[in-house]
Design a protein around this nucleic acid. Structure first.
Lengths: 152, 152
DNA sequence: TATTATTAAAGTCAAAGATAGTCAACCAAT
DNA sequence: ATTGGTTGACTATCTTTGACTTTAATAATA
């Protein structure tokens, strides 16, 4: 039996298909109203059926003019990167593993030097060793680290 | 979803572009009337989208004959913009602020499209909203996000 | 002329409005 | 008993509005 989540999933995929494929932007409350369900149900559908593992990424914004944008990954844009993304990166990657992976990406010419710097910066221990669990604080440190990487 | 603030932002940027580039002078009340919004809305747009870290400076005068002058900074003539950017990034940067900053960097040709994607990915809410305070876990999510950014 | 009042701007800040996110409790079907 | 789905209370974030303040130019007055 199709649950409401299944129905919403199909609906969203149909939307993406109709929009020639790669992305669609929705209002969470509208969709929820349309299917007469709780708004948070949309989040459930997104996390269980539109994750990176499923081949999608999500982008959203709160507040007035808020939205949720669902984008399909395009493996054909870079099959090697896609394969690495899907098969090689587990849920726990140590700093050493990250450094090796980034170097490998570079050696296969999948990323250039600047991009490698950005990645090392964003995943460095310095950045991630946060005493507070504060998103904005971490984000600013990540941004600073990435800009530093491009300047020095 | 384009908010009225977004529309005003585009309008002002278009004005600057048309004026061959570097500066434009407006009347706050006129713009507000034109877009049928509160005058203070203009200030909101200016502070959220035309600050120094976005590559602009503002100059204004109150009273009779008052005005607001928006000037574009020129990074190529002023290398210390890098310095300004580093100093302007506070310890708390929201996602929206990060997105706008990254776009400004791009508009000033300090980073290219791929680099902007990497930065947005590494600083996205999805990545940083970690319930666990686990470095390796976060790092893998950041890496995945960055790779996704290169293929979507 | 010097001073004061009036008018015409722009600035500030906090409250209200509009979205989306999180999380834990509850429910249903294996 | 476990897994997956549903709901709603609470939270976070961004935008819009308006009352009040500040400043500058001009007009009126001493």
């Amino acid at each position: 039996m199709a649950t409401i989540s299944d129905v919403i999933e199909s609906f969203l995929k149909e939307l993406i298909r109709q929009s020639q494929g790669q992305a669609v932007e929705i209002q969470r409350n509208e969709i929820a109203k349309h299917f007469d369900c709780a708004p948070s149900q949309i989040n459930y559908v997104l996390t269980t059926r539109f994750s990176v593992q499923h081949g999608y990424t999500i982008e959203s914004q709160r507040g007035g003019g808020g939205y949720i944008k669902i984008m399909r990954l395009r493996p054909e844009r870079n099959p090697s990167v896609h394969q690495i993304l899907m098969e090689e990166i587990r849920d726990n990657v140590t700093k050493t593993q990250a450094v090796r992976l980034i170097r490998a990406l570079q050696e296969q010419n999948l990323i250039n030097d600047r991009e490698a710097r950005l990645m090392r910066a964003a995943t460095s221990d310095v950045v991630l060793a946060s005493p507070l669990n504060n998103r904005d604080y971490m984000r600013s440190r990540i941004l600073k680290a990435m800009l530093s990487a491009l300047i020095h």
